[in-house]
Amino acid sequence: MDSNQNTDEAVLVPKSRSKGKAVEDASPAPTPAVVSTKKVTVVVRRVGWKKGVAIFDFVLRLCAAAAAFAASVAAAQAEQILPFFTQFLQFHAQYNDLPTITFFVIANAAAGAYLVLSLPFSIICIVRPYKVGPRLLLLILDTVMTTVTIGAAGAASAIMYLAHNGSVDANWLAICQQFTDFCQQITGAVVASFVAAVILIALVAISAVALKRTTSITTH
């Protein structure tokens, strides 16, 4: 009897220990990782929006460059000679006779050249919509060229107003009554310059909005 009892106890003790060890080693299974697709969808939409804005920026730069060059060329080619009976006395009107119109020609040519040179940076903004450096550089330079273009167009428009209407107080004659072709060509150039200035203002606004969205996304 004693030997059988010892054998039973020897067998029962390891079984109880193995069960306890199995209970102790048991641990809850790890929960599967849940990937939120909402944030990924929002980021993709923002990337698409920024790329579309960058493409629109590129197109506007082409239009502004065309308007600025058209204004500069039209003003530089404005010239008229009034016919008189003698060849020794002629009334000649040209853009470099007026310093304001000369500044107008130079400013619009500089604006057109800048807009052409800014096209590679606009392409970088299309390829890399989250790059802050090129967008910030375009914002600063666009603001400078907007100021120059508006200043040149405003000064030229003031001169052309006097050319069309004259000034009784200053005894300035309305020369456009004689130099009609010259005044019409300069007036068209001033209109084209104001078109370029309006597009530059739109480019500044686009760059500011795109830069704000870029910084907000990077901070999040």
Rank of each mutant, 00 (worst) to 15 (best):
E9L: 10
S157H: 06
F88M: 11
Q80V: 08
R213K: 08
V40A: 13
T146C: 00
A75W: 02
L12H: 14
Q87A: 00
K51Y: 00
V127K: 08
V23H: 07
A174M: 11
L173C: 11
T147A: 13
L138K: 00
Q87K: 08
L138Y: 01
T214F: 03
E79S: 14
E79Y: 09
T219P: 07
V190K: 00
K212L: 08
S16L: 09
L89K: 06
K51G: 00
V132L: 04
K38Q: 06
V43F: 01
D142K: 04
E24A: 15
T147G: 13
A66G: 07
F103E: 05
A54Q: 02
A189I: 12
I199P: 00
G151Q: 03
L136N: 01
N108T: 05
F69C: 14
T146P: 07
Q177N: 12
E9A: 06
L89S: 10
A75I: 04
L89P: 03
A29W: 02
P99N: 10
L117E: 07
A33D: 14
A158E: 03
V105R: 01
V144I: 15
A210T: 03
T214H: 00
F194I: 11
H220Q: 04
G166N: 08
L173Y: 10
V116Y: 01
M160P: 06
Y130Q: 13
R135A: 05
A64G: 10
T218H: 09
P129W: 02
S16D: 01
V127I: 15
T102F: 04
I206L: 06
T37A: 07
L89E: 05
A64C: 04
I123W: 01
Y130E: 00
I126G: 05
T214A: 09
A109D: 06
T31A: 15
Y130T: 04
G188K: 06
A174P: 15
T180K: 13
F104R: 00
A196R: 03
V190H: 05
A113W: 02
Q94M: 05
